[in-house]
Nucleic acid binder design. Structure first.
Length: 564
RNA sequence: CGGGGCGUAGCGCAGUUUGGUAGCGCAUCUGCUUUGGGAGCAGAGGGUCGGAGGUUCGAAUCCUCUCGCCCCGACCA
């Protein structure tokens, strides 16, 4: 491919509103342009990268027996109403009416439609298992699109759905997807972790996420040398022990000190010596107060709590006063009749808590003595905590979620009546799994993980081209001739080649080559040509090999792993 | 949705406090020179200053409303 024929609008400067590295570089290097918030145009080179990623996904999905099909983007409301998600989802779903006034929506995911199809077409255990997948555009009206192509309102997703007669079948499909995903991300040249993830409110379901480490990532994972890896949304951790205390129980005057920080400064006691009592209102049953108690140095993990008590909201000041008879800031877990959930790290030892009396705290509070809670891990794992499996310190990393796998069970098949008959003629709901990958996120993660001050350094498998040839001076017929010959040889060897045939100064071409980030660069310059040599350079290491012009194309193809 | 910031030429920015009719760098176009890391000189083109209304003799600048974009948080079934 000739550079002069390709639309690659590179920029000297990154747009001012770009923050993430991948955002800046993908715009600067001419891979994408923004149409509106969360809507991106993929320019020719960007589209090439995405298609290379898609091809890898397709190969690996086909290899595990998944079958590609194509689904409508526009969905009738009824199906979403049947699973209840029409009303559950809210503003994130794009909704519209057709000319007949029927409610429709734009697909943000395809569980409903896939299950609808299965409900209609699968009847017998003989039809199972099935794995169907699609690589198509999804639309979500994101509350906050961000970081370039990392979080957009319209995006391509590879999602597959498995249909099995039993849990054993699901396990097999779940595992084969996990393995396929490992191969896909490895082939795409990414560093990644497969972590345990929060399976939401559905209870009991298993799910994992594939996470690519990057500063631009929106998620955080906890990882341990022993192999434990989890999204912090559900990471178990053992907090470091609180200081041992042997106190006589006593009230302390703490005028106007409400927060743990304030009281801890005032009493010169470590935050971990405190119990923090937070009142929330569960939504079912409506407005039932729950007291959540964590250690003073910890943060209440709302998702963990929600798993136990269901959805909840913060209690208002008035509700706290009415229910507990004390104002916020001086709440203690003692002497209340409300439901109390406490983090297990408070089981042993003595702590300081609110005294249930304005301007007073209480020293020497003990669980089991002063109050009897339900015990549950409701704290957020944080640096300093130990792995709950092996006790070693946990490490934390920001990550981009690039894929997930999810055991759905019968949630959708039951709602949409997707069932099969077994050998005895008994009907059972189909057991389902869903598995997603965002190729644009792979692309962004690759740039996040592979760049230097000069530009992008693409992994070989997903670079827009395999190799770029740069004749430095197109005014020199010999250089052009040599470059063309090398190009022909490389293409013959099955490589995708970009040749910069522009009449530009050498500096411009070399800068653009570095910015665009094709992993191998062949430089044909007058200087080395005099000695009958050309240069073969690694974008990643900068290492340059000089090769004789004669047979250069074949030599390079061979170095790049192609048989000639 | 809450908080913050920003909209002036394709990109990056100055000018706004103190109103006087728009400027710089890069990019673009022409010519000459130059050719191994974003060239030099000379010349040229390009902006309803996000939009609407208002104040004023006069608005990029002041006032009101509005639209868009970015960042932090909430949210992400």
């Amino acid at each position: 491919m000739r550079y002069s024929k390709l639309f690659i609008p590179t920029l000297r400067e990154a747009p001012a509103d770009a923050e993430a590295i991948s955002h800046k570089l993908l715009v600067r290097a001419g891979f994408v342009r923004q149409l509106a918030s969360g809507l991106y145009i993929y320019l020719p080179t960007g589209w090439r990268v995405l298609n290379r990623i898609n091809r890898i996904m397709k190969e690996e999905m086909d290899a595990i027996g998944a079958q590609e099909l194509s689904m409508p983007v526009l969905h009738p409301a009824e199906i979403w109403q049947e699973t209840g998600r029409w009303s559950v989802i809210g503003d994130e779903m794009f909704r519209l009416k057709d000319r007949g006034g029927r409610d429709m929506c734009l697909g943000m995911t395809h569980e409903e439609i896939m299950t609808w199809l299965a409900a209609r077409e699968i009847r017998s255990y003989r039809d199972l298992p099935q794995v169907w997948y699609q690589m198509q555009t999804k639309l979500r009206d994101e509350a906050r699109p961000k970081s370039g192509i990392l979080r957009t309102r319209e995006f391509i997703m590879k999602d597959s759905y498995s249909f099995d007669r039993d849990e054993e079948g699901l396990d097999i499909n779940y595992r084969s997807h996990s393995e396929a995903y490992h191969r896909i991300f490895a082939r795409c040249g990414l560093k990644f972790h497969e972590v345990e993830s929060d399976s939401g409110m559905m209870g009991g379901a298993v799910s994992h996420e594939f996470m690519a480490p990057s500063a631009a990532g929106e998620d955080t994972i906890a990882i341990c040398a022993c192999g434990y890896q989890s999204n912090v949304e559900c990471a178990a951790s053992t907090p470091k022990p609180a200081p041992v205390a042997a106190w006589e129980k006593e009230e302390i005057h703490t005028p106007n000190r409400r927060t743990v920080q304030e009281v801890s400064n005032f009493l010169k006691a470590d935050a971990s010596s405190f119990m923090k009592s937070i009142m929330v209102m569960a939504t079912s049953p409506e407005n039932s107060p729950v007291l959540a108690v964590v250690r003073g140095d910890q943060t209440l993990h709302e998702k963990k709590l929600a798993k136990i008590i269901g959805q909840f909201r913060a209690a208002t000041k008035d509700e706290i006063r009415e229910t507990l008879g004390v104002e916020a800031g001086f709440i203690g877990p003692m002497g209340h009749s409300v439901r109390i959930i406490a983090d297990p790290c408070l089981k042993d030892g003595m702590f300081i808590s609110g005294a249930n009396k304005a301007d007073y705290h209480m020293r020497g509070v003990q669980a089991g003595v002063d109050f009897t809670p339900e015990w549950a891990d409701i704290h957020e794992a944080k640096p300093g905590d130990a792995c709950s499996k092996c006790g070693a310190p946990l490490a934390f990393e920001n990550v981009i979620e690039i894929g997930n796998i999810f055991k759905l069970g019968t949630k959708y098949s039951a709602a949409l009546n997707a069932a099969y008959l077994d050998e005895q003629g008994n009907s059972h709901p189909i057991i389902m799994g869903s598995y997603g990958i965002g190729p644009a996120r792979i692309m962004a993660a690759a740039v996040e993980q592979g760049s230097d001050k000069n530009g992008i350094v693409w992994p070989e498998a997903i670079a827009p081209f395999d190799v770029e040839i740069v004749p430095l001076n197109v005014g020199n017929p010999e250089a052009v001739e040599v470059a063309d010959a090398v190009c022909a040889a490389l293409e013959k060897a099955g490589l995708e080649v970009l040749i910069d045939d522009r009449d530009e100064r050498p500096g411009v071409k070399l800068k653009d080559a570095d910015l665009i980030g094709i992993p191998w660069i062949v430089v044909v310059g007058d200087k080395t040509l005099k000695d009958g040599m050309i240069e073969f350079k690694s974008r990643k290491t900068g290492e340059v090999a000089k090769l004789p012009v004669e047979g250069a194309g074949e030599a390079i193809a061979e170095r790049m792993g192609k048989n000639v």
